[in-house]
């Protein structure tokens, strides 16, 4: 390894830190919902402020995708795909995380709901 290599590594680390700082500063806080998209169409919205254990079945490209949510987090439990990448990814809970299930064309994003702080009924 020579001097240029170390400089390259230094620059990568700094770029990494700058991007992380950016994500931190712009992370949305508030009432969170997980939105499930199939081929870019929203097919399901999960209220993550409800902490109880819940199961959802969504139709993916290869068949059924089982999504579960609990404690403000959401994950894919079962899916029909060769590598099961998105069920291996596990839980996500922050607004810059995404689960992408390529074979099933399913994307799960965490977003803030409607921008409202509360609803009176």
């Amino acid at each position: 390894m020579n001097k240029s290599d170390f400089k390259l590594i230094g620059i990568i680390v700094i770029v990494f830190l700058i991007i992380m700082l950016g994500f931190r500063l712009f992370e949305k806080k508030g009432e969170k919902v997980a939105r499930v998209y199939y081929q870019n169409e929203m097919v399901l919205e999960i209220d993550l402020s409800d902490k109880s254990y819940r199961e959802y079945n969504v139709n993916g490209y290869n068949g059924n995708v089982l999504i579960i949510s609990e404690n403000g987090k959401v994950r894919v439990k079962e899916e029909i795909s060769p590598l099961h990448l998105c069920s291996k990814q596990g839980w996500i809970d922050s607004s810059y995380e995404t689960i992408v299930c390529l074979p099933n064309k399913i994307i799960i994003k965490i977003e803030t709901s409607q921008d409202l702080d509360a609803i009176v009924r």
Binding site: K29, G30, D115, L116, D117, A118, I119, V120, R121
Partner: peptide
């Protein structure tokens, strides 16, 4: 504070004001 038909808010933690929806 959310209590069904009652909502009471103080200062907003991040934005200028709270936005409360009426159903």
């Amino acid at each position: 504070i959310y209590a069904g038909g009652n909502v009471l808010v103080g200062d907003h933690y991040k934005n200028d004001v709270y936005k409360i929806g009426i159903e």
